[in-house]
């Protein structure tokens, strides 16, 4: 840091105060970025926040009857929203822990392997560099009724084929697998980075003390990896709460029987469709925002706790 300052200052005292012209330069460099943030993030957020309190809001005429909590009352009592919330929470509770456990195992194995490293890296990196739309097509093929890969195997084994994409129970199952599979690479990369930060001397020390592979995993690796695990769990939960695209890409609708209707789907439908209800959509967005905010706070607490 200090070195950099010195180089830019051209030998002047690094403690010297920024000159006025510097502020102009800083504004010039940061300006476009700040402008983008204000236009595309801050302004819409504030607007949505305000919109959620406007009753009987019409976006075309920009009129509303007054401020109040009517939108929230409506949304929180809407059985469709509540079932969407339920579906979303179920998705988070299933996908995040399972993907995390699989990722930890894969990351630890990858971290310990010397052979096939290149092949394995390509393999786990695949979902990250391939478009999810393309992957969803592959998934549709794999789980298809007629000629689908899995159903072919099932029928070859003499079992009756399963309607994976057309029934509520199985479509949910396919979505979870799709979600887990998509989340793995990012999770593994973060965990691998975390693993590489662990001083190998701890493993040596534990080995001298007679610790076996499993002892080392539970007593050394997992606790020392816990800051990364906490981070990944929270980040994944946040993105899982916003699940929408996976459902849409797999089924073009909220599941075969409207069974995979998530919160974002609710917001999406309230904003668009033939009879948009912007107030409800904004209120639902803010509810989702607060759910995610709680998780973010949780992450801060956890990270402070696991800071060695």
């Amino acid at each position: 840091m200090n070195k950099k300052t010195k180089r830019y200052n051209g030998g002047r005292d690094p403690d010297e105060k920024f000159e006025a012209s510097m502020i102009g330069k800083i504004a010039l460099f940061l300006g476009p970025f700040m402008l983008g943030i204000v236009i595309f993030t801050i302004y819409p957020f504030i607007n949505a926040f305000l919109m959620s309190f406007k009753e009987n809001f019409s976006i075309l005429r920009n009129t509303f009857s007054g401020w109040g909590l009517a939108n929230y009352r409506k949304v929180l009592n809407d059985p469709i929203f509540l079932s969407g919330l339920k579906t979303t929470i179920k998705y988070v509770v299933i996908v995040v822990p399972i993907s995390l456990i699989i990722s930890i195992v894969i990351a630890v194995l990858l971290n310990n392997t010397r052979r096939f490293k290149a092949i394995l890296q390509t393999a786990y990196f695949m979902p990250l560099v391939t478009s999810t739309a393309a992957i969803s097509l592959v998934f549709r093929f794999i789980f298809a009724n007629e000629g689908g890969l899995i159903n072919k195997i099932i029928t070859t084994l003499g079992q009756t084929q399963i309607n994976f994409l057309g029934t509520n129970r199985w479509s949910e199952f396919v979505l979870y697998i799709f979600g887990i599979w998509n989340i793995l690479p990012f999770t593994i990369i973060l965990l691998l980075a975390g693993l590489q930060n662990i001083d190998p001397q701890y493993y040596t020390a534990a080995k001298v003390d007679g610790a076996k592979t499993l002892d080392i995993f539970t007593n050394i690796t997992v606790p020392l990896l816990s800051p990364t695990i906490a981070l990944v769990a929270i980040v994944n939960s946040i993105s899982a709460f916003k699940v929408f695209d996976y459902v849409f890409q797999l089924y073009n609708k909220p599941g075969p029987g409207y069974n995979l209707y998530t919160i974002i789907y609710y917001i999406y439908e309230k904003f668009g469709g033939t009879k948009p209800q912007y107030g409800y959509a904004a209120a639902a967005s803010i509810v989702l925002f607060f759910i995610i905010a709680v998780f973010t706070l949780l992450q801060r607490v956890l990270q402070k706790k696991t800071n060695y």
Partner: peptide, 14 residues
Amino acid sequence: EVGLVFQNYALYPH
């Protein structure tokens, strides 16, 4: 049955 003290001690930080 050896005890080893590392140069930087390698105490488990957690």
